[in-house]
């Protein structure tokens, strides 16, 4: 019994000690993989007994994988929309926000009237619109 308890203690201490060792990250596939994060209460236990080391990864459905240029980590507009869809839709519905500002800077339209985009929300975020469609819809709304 004692042995078992110690073995458990040891293995738990090891999993508990893993400091910021997440999966490979960078340009290419790795950079777009977040780890599966569940707010599970006994994540410590779960991590031990499920044999999960935090690698339930997911990819984003962009063909470009975030970095058009592996050397520079430069981001294309479509990738930006893809990776920031939730925050961008929040911001456009409110007519303000950091993600919207970043997007407008990226497309070189920093000084547009953001309330125009806010009012056009229904035509921008159409049902199941892809990142590319959202981007196009924004440009259309801006050029009206």
């Amino acid at each position: 019994m004692k042995k078992i308890l110690f073995a458990a203690a040891f293995s738990l201490s090891l999993t508990g000690s893993a400091m910021a060792a997440h999966g490979p990250a960078g340009c290419g596939l790795g950079s777009m993989l977040f780890q599966g994060k569940s707010g599970l209460v006994f994540n410590v236990l779960a991590a031990t007994f499920n044999g999960s080391s935090g690698n339930q990864t997911f990819g984003m459905s962009t063909g470009t994988l975030g970095c058009e240029d592996a050397q520079s980590a430069k981001v294309s507009v479509v990738s930006f929309v893809e990776g920031n869809k939730i925050a961008l839709s929040n911001d456009i519905s409110r007519g303000q926000g950091e993600t919207l500002d970043a997007y407008l800077e990226l497309i070189g339209q920093k000084n547009v009237d953001k309330s125009v985009l806010q009012k056009s929300y229904p035509t921008i975020f159409t049902k199941e619109a892809s990142a590319e469609q959202i981007h196009t819809n924004i440009l259309v709304a801006l050029n009206k």
């Binding site: 090891l14 999993t15 060792a21 997440h22 490979p24 031990t48 080391s53 690698n55």
Partner: peptide, 16 residues
């Protein structure tokens, strides 16, 4: 970051 190449928590801990 470390490139974690195992799903085994014990190996994960020990290797780490």
């Amino acid at each position: 970051a470390a490139s974690v190449d195992t799903q085994n928590p014990i190996a994960y801990g020990v290797k780490g």
